[in-house]
Design a protein around this nucleic acid. Structure first.
Length: 428
RNA sequence: GCGUCGGUCGGAUAGCGGCUAUUCCAGCGGACUGUAAAUCCGCCGCCCAUCGGGCACCGAAGGUUCGAGUCCUUCCCGACGCA
């Protein structure tokens, strides 16, 4: 089970410092969860994770389920698999409903742009063409008979989205069909079952992450379904040593967000995930609408958010934990984070530069004397070590940033800390 | 001196008579938010520009042709071979 203690509340905001106790150790909050989709943070060893002050890692249920390919029952457990004794959470697969579906079809990302970019909005997707149905049915033909019968039945009432070359997802009341190479069906019961087998300390209810491009009607329909899935996730749970978080949706719509946090916040979850998507400047409003509905004493996790400015805003509004791909993905892409923002070390200007990645940085890479020029060369050689060193630096940077956030709240200096941090940052 | 093969945007390349000259690297700029991502998207001869437009261009000069980077001639340069 999970214990959450709030150690200090900020007097000027909803920010708070706390500690989450899991069977595998403590997480001091506010905390950043590093993303290790396939049971490993890309390029990092377990030792690297510890040395970069990583407290907790999030692993993806869908991808792992796919990798295990039927060998789930024999799975040794995430901690053993990862050679990581610290806290772990697993996402439910709900994000893949979005990333393999709508996002893939429309090139949408979780955080949208300005309002003008939302001029186009989408309902349930275009009508299924006969070809779509035929392709889906032919895929079903290769499955075992019992499963096929079930899927066929489900197929009849699945009208929520239709698949095409890009969109490989079909959402139904029962659950979600993925045709990512082969036919898969994920529903709340299956997701919870997999997550219990994987054995993370914190697991999530199965949801559908909607797109900022979805219209009101679809967002509401999807949210209501996610609420039903939340209850089904709770009902499916059999282990009591894992914390189960519910996830709210509601997209960009105030009434839906309030309804969702009110509904999910009223269920007996151990913590709450704030999911879905919104426009770039809409996150603060969304958090203001939703957080008051959550029980004070339970942790709140903002799913998939992780830029410095967003973290400061979210902490201020009462968020305890985050997870985001930014430190790790951007590192592999050559972006090095500093207190002043990030820079692309692959660019020619870093060639031959003898300066450290960031002045005064205490990360293992900087401590070992890695210079911008050295990292530049490694990237140019396509050396794996480049991604690793950059990841070490960025992960340490974000973890250390969270440490500073905690410290600022402890000292009653959060508002000042936020202002000063943003003033330094050219790249928010 | 003779012969052979070559000279294409910073480098390397494709192109073998027919519309906007290819691709890779480097360079410049942008993106990345519960990871289909060590990735992706622009630009990369010159000039003006908001969309866009104007002018060049395949070592040089001639020629053949409706049309030439591509064929022919001469010259220049480079590699190799023979003297």
């Amino acid at each position: 089970m999970l214990e959450f203690k709030i150690l200090k509340k900020d007097s000027d905001s909803r920010a708070r410092v706390g500690v989450i106790e899991t069977p595998h150790g403590f997480v001091e909050t506010p905390a950043y969860t590093m993303v290790g989709t396939n049971a490993a943070v890309r390029t990092l060893t377990p030792e690297d994770l510890r040395e970069t002050k990583t407290q907790i890692v999030i692993v993806n249920t869908y991808h792992l389920w796919k990798d295990l390919n039927g060998t789930l029952d024999a799975f040794e457990g995430l901690h053993k698999k990862m050679r990581w004794e610290g806290p772990v959470m697993t996402d439910s697969g709900g994000f893949q409903v979005f990333s393999f579906g709508f996002a893939r079809e429309h090139g949408a990302s979780k955080v949208g742009g300005k309002r003008s970019e939302f001029s186009q909005s989408f309902g349930a997707g275009h009508s299924p063409s006969p070809a779509d149905g035929a392709a889906l049915r032919s895929r079903l033909a290769i499955l075992p008979e019992a499963k096929r019968a079930r899927l066929r039945a489900l197929l009849r009432d699945g009208e929520d989205s239709s698949r095409n070359d890009k969109n490989v997802v079909k959402v139904t009341e029962e659950g979600v069909f993925f045709s990512d190479g082969e036919e898969r069906f994920l529903d709340p019961e299956t997701s919870i079952h997999i997550q219990e087998k994987l054995g993370a300390d914190i697991i999530f209810a199965f949801d559908e992450c909607t797109s900022p491009l979805n219209d009101y009607a679809y967002t509401k329909q999807s949210m209501d379904r996610t609420h039903r899935w939340a209850q089904r996730s709770l009902d499916a749970r059999t282990r009591n040593d894992q914390a189960l978080y519910g996830i709210i949706q509601g997209g960009r719509y105030e009434d839906l967000r309030k309804e969702s946090s009110g509904f999910i916040g009223g269920l007996p979850f151990d913590g709450f995930g704030i999911g879905g998507s919104f426009g770039k400047n809409e996150m603060r409003d969304m958090l203001r609408w939703t957080i008051p509905f959550f029980p004070e004493g339970k942790p709140r996790h903002l799913l998939g958010i992780g830029r410095i400015e967003d973290i400061l805003n979210a902490v201020e509004l009462g968020v305890d934990t985050f997870d985001c791909v930014i430190p790790t993905r951007e590192a592999r892409h050559g972006s090095v984070w500093t207190a002043r923002g990030r820079y692309d070390v692959k660019k020619g200007i870093s060639a031959g530069d003898k300066k450290p990645l960031e002045k005064g940085c205490g990360c293992p890479a900087c401590a070992a004397g890695v210079t911008r020029g050295k990292l530049h060369d490694l990237f140019k050689e396509h050396n794996w070590e480049a991604g690793r060193l950059a990841t070490i630096h960025n992960v340490w940077f974000f973890n250390d940033f969270m440490r500073q956030v905690r410290e600022a709240i402890q000292h009653g200096q959060f508002t000042k800390f936020k202002r000063k941090t943003l003033a330094k940052l050219t790249d928010k």
